[in-house]
Design a protein around this nucleic acid. Structure first.
Lengths: 134, 134
DNA sequence: AGTAATGATACCATAAGAGTATCATTTGTC
DNA sequence: GACAAATGATACTCTTATGGTATCATTACT
């Protein structure tokens, strides 16, 4: 029952760190030593964030990564979308066929309401908000 | 991001059905034909519910399964515990070692609060409550 | 030219999820 | 007692997702 996966988690930590250094360019090496995240995995993650426009990357000597957005505009749900896809707690189990147990599925409505709740709570989390708590 | 797994789901459906027939003994065959759940999988599930005291089983010809508890006393979270283990949305990623990023983990407190919320909503769901909606 | 960085990709290992298959045991019925 | 109808126990399989590793290509500063 994993709400956030490792890559989302690592992404969040990296972004929190980068937000805390106020816009400086940071290399993977720095992040690895500060955050103790496996280097090749972290690289993949940062590249994905770059592709998605959350980070800007600079190649070559002296290069690295930098936030492309202010921390208030980076939502945890953005990261979750990138690494985990759209947030759905449970899809109906019979997708294609119309669920043959529809009238036995009051579960669905309950789950949906929980889901909405979780989403609305998640939507209040930004990198900036995580930084403040720190 | 699965809140409930297939076995929990199937278990709930089976129990809802059994609750609706008011205490009659029901065979796997009946459940299979009514609920369209793969037979061997359903058998495993019912056996687990039996072991856990949620169902009573009767072997031999004329046997089957029957609720061991009133539907108001069977909680969705009971099923989740059986099939999915204790409800935790996210464990801290570094379990043994004390998390070396503790001060970078404001995420945890947010997640915990979401988790509590989900649990309290789930705790209100019983087989009886699901039956009523139907 | 050399070196320090990221970009793109392909690969791999483990575990969990979702079942399947089979043999053993119990119990009612003829 | 034999047979059939049920569950009990258990071992196996298939697929996908997770959490990585490894490598070669490219860019850019000095």
């Amino acid at each position: 029952m994993k709400l956030i996966t490792r890559d989302t988690d690592y992404a969040a930590r990296a972004l929190i760190f980068m937000a805390s250094t106020k816009g400086e360019t940071v290399t993977v090496s720095t992040l690895v030593s500060k955050l103790r995240i496996p280097r090749p995995f972290l690289r993949q993650i940062l590249q994905a964030l770059n592709k998605d426009g959350i980070l800007k990357s600079y190649k070559g000597s002296g290069g690295g990564f930098r936030l492309a957005l202010p921390p208030e505009k980076i939502f945890l749900t953005d990261l979750m979308k990138i690494f985990q896809g759209a947030l759905k707690l449970n899809e109906c189990i019979f997708k294609k066929k119309v669920c043959p147990n529809k009238n036995l599925c009051p579960l669905r409505s309950k789950i949906s309401s929980i889901e909405e709740n979780v989403i609305s709570q998640l939507n209040s989390i930004t990198i900036a908000s995580l930084l403040r708590i720190r």
